[in-house]
């Protein structure tokens, strides 16, 4: 415990440029207000409670190698640097790469403007762009998480073949049963000796 605390203070001392190591509640609040959904730090960070702490994915649990990676990520001020920060998830890394640390910090004043600068990347490949997932408050790294209606439209197009086949099969089934029903109708009337009126049933 003590060793870990020492690491934290050491890190903070070594990184005066990087600023305090807390998550960015501005983004969280803006996304929650816009989407009406609750999110947490795991939107961009490795740990749902943010970077501070001693659990996996938090600063207190980093190895020296992780620390170096963290430092590299923190000095990625301009866009275009490939980063792999131990306290960020892939979306967090992507943000740093796409926008740069400087711009990210500046965007805290107007968090949702980030959406316009994010382009049309879609990290989880669920067919909804990361920017849109930010607006929806759905996770950009979960393939099965998205605004239900958007997912419906996307998946309808992706699985068109299965769905068309299902519709054809259902059509055949209903067609077959309808004809069997009429057949039984005829047979029943036949059994009655044609006493009933010959109306299709």
């Amino acid at each position: 415990m003590r060793a870990r605390l020492a690491t934290i203070s050491l890190t903070l001392a070594l990184l005066p440029l990087a600023g305090p190591a807390h998550a960015h509640p501005e983004f969280e609040k803006a996304i929650e207000a816009r989407s009406g959904r609750t999110i947490d730090c795991a939107f961009c960070h490795a740990h749902p409670d943010g970077p501070e702490g001693v659990h996996a994915g938090q600063i207190g649990a980093l190895s020296p190698a992780d620390m170096q990676a963290l430092n590299r990520a923190r000095t990625a001020f301009e866009p275009g640097t490939e980063v792999d920060s131990p306290i960020l998830n892939d979306f967090g890394d992507h943000l740093v790469t796409a926008l740069g640390k400087k711009r990210l910090v500046a965007l805290r004043q107007a968090p949702l403007k980030m959406v316009d600068e994010l382009g049309d990347s879609d990290l989880d490949g669920d067919g909804i762009s990361d920017a849109q997932e930010m607006l929806d408050g759905t996770h950009p790294l979960m393939r099965h998480h998205g605004a239900p209606w958007s997912l419906f439209v996307v998946n309808l197009q992706r699985s068109w073949f299965e769905i068309v086949m299902l519709i054809i099969a259902t059509f055949f089934g209903v067609y077959g049963i309808s004809h069997l029903l009429r057949w039984f109708g005829h047979e029943a009337r036949g059994a009655l000796g044609g006493e009933e009126d010959p109306k299709d049933g």
Binding site: A169, Y175, I177, H179
Partner: peptide, 9 residues
């Protein structure tokens, strides 16, 4: 037709 439909389905 009925059997055919059911068979295809």
């Amino acid at each position: 037709k009925g059997l055919g439909g059911l068979f295809a389905a």
